[in-house]
Each structure stands twice: as structure tokens, then as C-alpha cells.
Amino acid sequence: MKLIEQPFVRRILNGRAIWPLLALAVILIADGFISPGFYEIRIVEGRLFGNLIDILYRAVPTALIALGMAVVIGTRGIDLSVGSIAAIAGAMIAWRIQAGDPHGVVLLYALGAGILCGMWNGMLVAFLGIQPIIATLILMVSGRGIGMLINLIYGGTDPSFQSDFLQWLSTGSILFIPTRLYVFAVIFLLLWLVIRRTALGLFVEATGGNAAASNLAGVNAKLIIFAAYLICGLTAGWAGVILTADTHTSDPVSVALYIELDAILAVVIGGGSLAGGRIYLGMTVIGALVIQALTTSILISGLPPEYNLIIKALVVLFVLVLQSDNARRGIVSKFRRSP
């Protein structure tokens, strides 16, 4: 059997990675035309400011959730409850600070709540065999209510709080760079190590690709699925911490609203398939950046905000069409050398 060398252009066009990156580049270049000072970065109060920094900064919560979502989608699942988990984590923060816990411990409470929520989802999907979309819908619907109940524990009149530590995690900076970017980088690195440096990634992909076959091959598919939802709960908990510390108030009704949709989109733009079987952590982050870059550029373009969602939908559609095998084959054939 002979290996066929593909021409460079075709190899690039056939690759998955090129399209989200291209989309991101196009959006950023277009921004340069829309707003002349777009790429400007200055230092204000010991921290970098500018549109590019702003895109990274604002993309963090979605990107965090998208990472967990990528793992869950890798198992052929989906987690609709991530926004609610973030709300619960936020409510935990306000409650435990009111209760007077050290703020480091408060952080652990919030993340622990996220993990518990993930375990709940994982139990429903993996061990009770409930379809993921329904199983996570339960917590999606009830989670914000649970958040409000937590607020009621201490009277519920004023869910705002002061915490230098948590606010530093979210809005502070180290060496001119926002702290939350470091937080994200560390989480990304740890997750990448767990997925790619252990066999967990392979097991997740095998389970998502064919659960029955993986099971007969000796992979404990149920445990793998459970672990995926746990990881997703944890990253959603972190997103809840970042978002809640930003506003230093617990607002279960509206915090991280619809973030599950952006996270799913980020995974899909990054090349993940809802049919499961593959995890692309790096590309998922690019997907989240595409979404945030788009939102930011619509805002600075001065277009009425009503256009925001429609343009977002159009760009997402465009990227997905480019990613579809059928459409790509059509485009690639244009680059084929004539015989």
C-alpha cells in the first residue's frame, strides 16, 4: 500500500483546524477596519487594557465551560445545566462569605458544589441511563432555584459580598495581565494533562465513539461518562466563581444565562462533533474566542445590539458550513490540479 502525498494547499484545506482560526483572523482583521484603534493596547492602573485583551478577558467563563463541555460531548453526551451550576457555585460563595469562612475555603465550597452537581448529572446519565439532554435539563431547570434557596439561607436580602481574594482572582492582574487569564491557563494545562497525559482522553473518545465496543474491550464506560460530567461540573463551578466575583453579588436568576449554548457552539466551532468520539481542547478555546470576538466587534461597530445575535448566528453558520465534509469537498475540488 502506498501513501499518497497531498499537496500543501489541500492538506490545509482538508484539516479541521484551519477554519476556526481563519474565522477568528477574519473577524479581528475586519475589526481593524471598523475601528481604527482596535489593536491598541495601553496600560491603565497597572493592567493591560484594549480590545484584544478585552476579548480574552471576557471569553474566560465561556471558554472554561466549553472545556468541560468538550469532554462531555466527547462521550456523546451534552450538559445543559452548566449555567445553573455556575449560579449554584456563585450562591455558595455569597453564603459562605456571609457565614464568615476564610475566602480560600469559600472557593473550595464553590468548586465542591460544581463537582457535586457534575456527579449528580453523571449519575443520572451513566448509572441510570437517562438521555444526557433530559438528565441535565433537570439541573438546568432546578439549579437557579437551588441558587436562590441558598441565598435565602442567610436571609436573602443582600446577596452581595466583599472578597479581596476572589475579586483578585476574577478582576485583578499580575504583571499587567488579568489574573483570570492565569487561572484559565492553569486549568487548561491541568485538564490537558489529565486528558492527554493519562489514558482518560482515549477512554472518553472510545466510549463516545462506540460505548458497547469499549465496554467489551474492558473500558468501564459508565465510570468514564461519570467522570466527564464531573469534570464539566468543576469547570462550570470555576466559571461561576469568575462571574460571581466579577459582580461581587450572587445573582442566580441571570448569571451565566444561555452560557451552555455558547459553550456548545464553541465546542462545535472547534471541530467537536455532537456524535462524540473526539476531544479538541485547544480548538475549543479558539471556538470560544471566535464567539467572544464576534460579540465584542458587534458592540464596537456601533450596530444596534439587536443585530448582535443575528450576526453571531450567521458567522457560526458560515464556520459550520465550511467545516461540513460535503461543503469542504466542494471547495477543495476547486483547488485540484486539472488532469
Partner: peptide
Amino acid sequence: SEGLVGELSVRENIILSMQAKRGW
């Protein structure tokens, strides 16, 4: 339906059981 994970490579399929035995 029960034997292989079609979307994974030959290599990944071959080491799957061995890896499962070793633990993640």
C-alpha cells in the same frame, strides 16, 4: 457495533484493551 471504535485509529483500537487493563 460491538467490536471496534470506527472513528479511532488502528493504533488506538489495538491498545485499547491493554490500556484498560493498566488503568487510566
